[in-house]
Amino acid sequence: MKKKLIACMVCLLLITSPARPAERMAALPILEIVKAVTKKVIKAIDLRIQRLQNKTIWLQNAQKQAENVLSKLKLDEISEWTQKQKDLYKGYYEELGKVKSIITYYQRIREIAKKQSRLVQEYERAWNLFRQDPHFKDSEIQYMERVYSGIMEESLKNIDQIFLMLDSFTTQMSDLKRLEIINKAADQIDANYDDLLLFNRQNVMLSLQRAKTEADAKQVKQFYGIP
């Protein structure tokens, strides 16, 4: 469902967006989709973590109450209550362990989603600078747009992977398989992020190489925040 929703939004943008002439283009239409979906994903993860943390507090309190009951029992009553309380305590302990494990998974997924968010922010920052840089031809700006479009499309696949990770908690899945999905998604986003940073660095260096004077080179460095 989530894949279809994202795909429909992309198609709608492609249909409704007019063909652009060779000019300094604005931000890619797909960017708004990636930003919006990424923001919703992080918000959903934060909400789930909060709920699980509340459940952890409840289980810890329940566990403590069970311990208090055992400590107040008289010696002759322990034999009757021990097994019952032991089973109850064991249940709280096992559930608490599961909840803490899930929180750890969610926190890892949140880190991955945050990396996706940083990828979008880095793209937006760099693109806004490059399209204002007079050292690039319009044809080169168009080439950059195609490269960035490809990276943003890969980002949508990353978001699909994040949704898959979240859905894994509502289905019967082993921890090993879940961890495999999480690591795969993390590797994909890391690769996309590294590709983006490399492409940005190459473009900045190209602009610097095209500076005709020392003053021009200094201005380029200031423009891109190069020390």
Rank of each mutant, 00 (worst) to 15 (best):
E153M: 13
A26Y: 05
Q142M: 14
N68C: 01
E67M: 08
D133N: 09
T170N: 15
Q209N: 10
Y89I: 15
P18V: 06
M1R: 08
E94C: 01
Q50G: 09
G225R: 06
E214V: 04
Q172E: 13
D160F: 15
K90V: 04
I189A: 01
L129T: 03
A26H: 00
R24N: 11
P18K: 04
F130P: 05
M9T: 13
S79M: 07
C8S: 15
K177L: 07
A62P: 00
A36K: 15
M205A: 09
Q121R: 10
F136I: 02
D194V: 10
N54A: 11
R131K: 15
Q142V: 06
D160H: 11
K64V: 04
T82E: 09
Q85E: 14
I6P: 07
E154P: 00
G91L: 11
A215R: 07
R178I: 04
S101L: 04
P227I: 06
N68Y: 06
S79P: 02
D87Q: 13
Y224G: 04
L176N: 02
L47H: 14
T82N: 08
L96D: 02
S117F: 07
L13K: 05
I6N: 04
L31Q: 08
A27E: 11
Q53Y: 00
L96Y: 03
V220E: 09
F136H: 05
D187V: 05
M152E: 09
G97P: 00
A113F: 01
Y143H: 11
K2N: 11
W127Y: 15
I78K: 11
W127C: 03
E80V: 05
K98A: 04
S71R: 12
V69N: 03
L73D: 03
K84L: 09
F199D: 11
L59E: 08
S174Q: 02
K157Y: 10
Q188T: 07
D194L: 09
Q142A: 08
L196M: 14
L208R: 07
N203C: 09
N128R: 11
L14A: 07
M9E: 10
K40M: 13
M165D: 15
G225Y: 06
Q50A: 10
T82M: 10
I33W: 00
K86V: 08
Q65V: 12
S101K: 05
N68R: 14
K98N: 04
Q121F: 03
Q116N: 11
M25T: 06
A26F: 01
L179Y: 00
S174K: 05
W81M: 14
L47N: 13
I182C: 05
L14G: 10
I57T: 10
Y123G: 03
A185R: 05
M152H: 05
R201I: 03
K221D: 04
N203S: 12
I42K: 14
Q209C: 07
I30L: 07
A36T: 11
E122P: 00
V37I: 12
E23P: 00
Y105H: 11
A7F: 12
T170M: 09
D138V: 15
F199K: 12
F130A: 01
L14P: 00
D216L: 03
L119H: 08
K100A: 00
V10R: 07
Y93R: 11
V34C: 10
E180S: 10
P29T: 00
L88T: 12
V99S: 03
N183P: 01
A217W: 00
E80P: 01
E23D: 08
L119D: 00
A22G: 06
A211P: 02
